[in-house]
Amino acid sequence: MNPIIELKNVFKNYGDKQVLKGINLTINAGQIIGYIGSNGAGKSTTVKILCGLIADYEGTVTVAGINLSDNPIEAKRKIGYIPELAELYDVLTPMEFLSLMGELYDLPTDIATDRIIKMLTAFGLENNIHQRMDTFSKGMKQKVLIISGLLHNPDIIILDEPLSGLDANSVIIVKDLISKLAKDGKTIFYCSHMMDVVEKVSDRIIFINEGMVIADGSFLELQQQQGNESLEKIFALMTAKEGSNQAASAIMQAFDSQ
């Protein structure tokens, strides 16, 4: 099977700080990848490289057989990116904003409009199609963001904390959507701190810590390696310098000294 995403020896520095230290990943089509790391581990940097937001990295990144450095625009057309709570163009309506996104992907207007209406309706925003987004709640904006990433029917969907701000019903919709998209042959690259969700939806989990991949396998495989623990525990065991319990105690001690 041809890999749909391939990262070979990817390094990235911010000034003197090396954020990625030689990432190697091969992801096949139809997989749901849970990409997990603590703050500053290099998770967001990997995502930004894949989405073409960072160009000055070392190594090779291939998306659907297209070298990202050589043809970023073409590669990006294969990807749908759903960031965590980006501010939208608040003065626009969802229809105007999503139409722009459709135009950026060169989607024919009639197809884009049809998809926008159907997706907004699916998320319960059918009455807000022509309403300015500066009146929208955090969750409503997140729904619009999710639609913008899916609008062009991409082969790869990268989600960066997509459930942030969503209400319970919408979380269920997104989880179901992820499963259905995967069944449809889409590749899902899912970054989240919400371990229980990752545990349930992912068929492959990658841990990244200090710019390196430290674990890669299915949840069952990880459990076999680390004992029958939850994903959260496994993550803590593999990444925390101190146990979480110890960290919490240290915080409480800070109050005691007053």
Partner: peptide, 11 residues
């Protein structure tokens, strides 16, 4: 605002 990421990532 974070909207540059949207523009750049979406074509």
């Amino acid at each position: 605002k974070g909207t540059m990421a949207l523009l750049i990532s979406q074509g």
